[in-house]
């Protein structure tokens, strides 16, 4: 790692700095979305960028998700490098047609003639009592679709570094920023820059159980790992970073070592990313396991408004601790 001095920053500022860098580095880059300019972004991510880059490159759109996402696809075909912001993943459903039927397929349908170098950023996730139309975690759905790359920055370094790499990718990349992370504060190296978007990262090494997660539940999982450590259960925590394509090598290497695996995902359990990961573990690493695969997901309910019910619907540290304890031999767990 570099020994460059670090500065205090937030996840929001890290994303903003990444957008700024992209606009400075490449004249083909522009950003568009609802209220990204004058308003400064629904989550204040792009605050100040209109003044710096002007309304052509920090472009406010009307409420027309399907049209401006589709226009992003067209602009990418036409040689631009668009960053399209959708306020929240629930609103991306109005643009699902363009994302799934165009962005993901044009390369293939054209027999390899076309590429869509487009980045779509959006907020995702629950935790702020925004109820059932503003709080879902649908990134797992998008990870179902061949032709898309799905990235989820959970750390300041990834919030700062994933965007440029995504823009360099010749194909569409969807980036999911968990709503509760924007205010997260920490240290980031002054010279932080682009990072890879291919590999999962081990955020905490451990030998007893592999905990696989991404996004905001990384921190819930790390908290659970702390609790478990006090019981002398050492967790290896993997941050997926990229949901498609999955870095199974990192997962298999960890599972071979720990022989136990739990996936923690804010998405629903049924038909989910967690199911995909565990199916692959069962397919390819079954004989490395000492215990059944397990997972902690959101309850199968649209996100309810009251805090106690929202909390109950989401993966929480005690549930992760419970799930791990259940996998351990009796002598270790008590």
């Amino acid at each position: 790692m570099s020994a460059a001095p670090a500065k205090r920053t937030t996840y929001r500022e890290a994303v903003r700095e990444a957008i700024r860098e992209a606009l400075l580095r490449d004249p083909r880059v522009f950003m568009m979305g609802e209220d990204v300019g004058r308003y400064g972004g629904a989550y204040a991510v792009s605050k100040g960028l209109l003044a710096e880059f002007g309304p052509e490159r920090m472009r406010d759109t009307p409420l027309s998700e399907s049209a401006f996402v589709g226009a992003g696809i067209g602009a990418a075909l036409g040689g631009a490098r668009p960053i399209v912001e959708i306020m929240t993943v629930n609103f991306s459903l109005l643009a699902l047609d363009q994302i799934v039927n165009n962005a993901a397929t044009l390369r293939h349908m054209s027999g390899g003639q076309l590429s869509v170098p487009l980045v779509i950023r959006m907020a995702t996730g629950a935790g702020r009592q925004l109820a059932a139309q503003h709080a879902h975690s649908l990134e797992g759905w998008f990870a179902h679709v061949p032709g898309l790359r799905i990235v989820v920055p959970a750390t300041l370094a990834d919030a700062r570094g994933m965007l440029w790499t995504a823009l360099e990718d010749p194909d569409p990349v969807l980036m999911f920023e968990h709503q509760t992370l924007y205010n997260m504060e920490g240290e980031l190296a002054e010279d932080a820059g682009p990072v890879d978007i291919d590999r999962a990262a081990v955020r905490r090494p451990g030998g007893d159980v592999t905990l696989i997660t991404y996004g905001a539940t990384l921190y819930t999982t790390l908290a659970a790992a702390e609790t478990l450590a006090a019981e002398r259960i050492e967790s290896e925590v993997i941050d997926l970073r990229t949901l498609r394509p999955l870095d199974m090598e990192t997962i298999f290497a960890s599972v071979r070592k720990t022989r136990r695996v739990v996936v923690i995902d804010e998405g629903w359990r049924s038909g989910s990313l967690s199911a995909e990961i565990l199916a692959r573990v069962a397919e390819s690493a079954f004989y490395d396991l000492d215990a059944p695969v397990a997972r902690v997901c959101s309850a199968e309910v649209p996100i309810p408004y009251p805090k106690h019910l929202e909390d109950a619907a989401l993966p929480q540290a005690p549930a992760i601790v419970e799930a791990v304890r259940a996998l351990m031999p009796a002598s270790v767990s008590r």
Partner: peptide, 16 residues
């Protein structure tokens, strides 16, 4: 308030 006596049983809140 999100109370179960609410017109949407508390599940919706201000927006629902």
């Amino acid at each position: 308030f999100g109370k179960q006596e609410g017109c949407s049983g508390g599940r919706g809140g201000s927006m629902h």
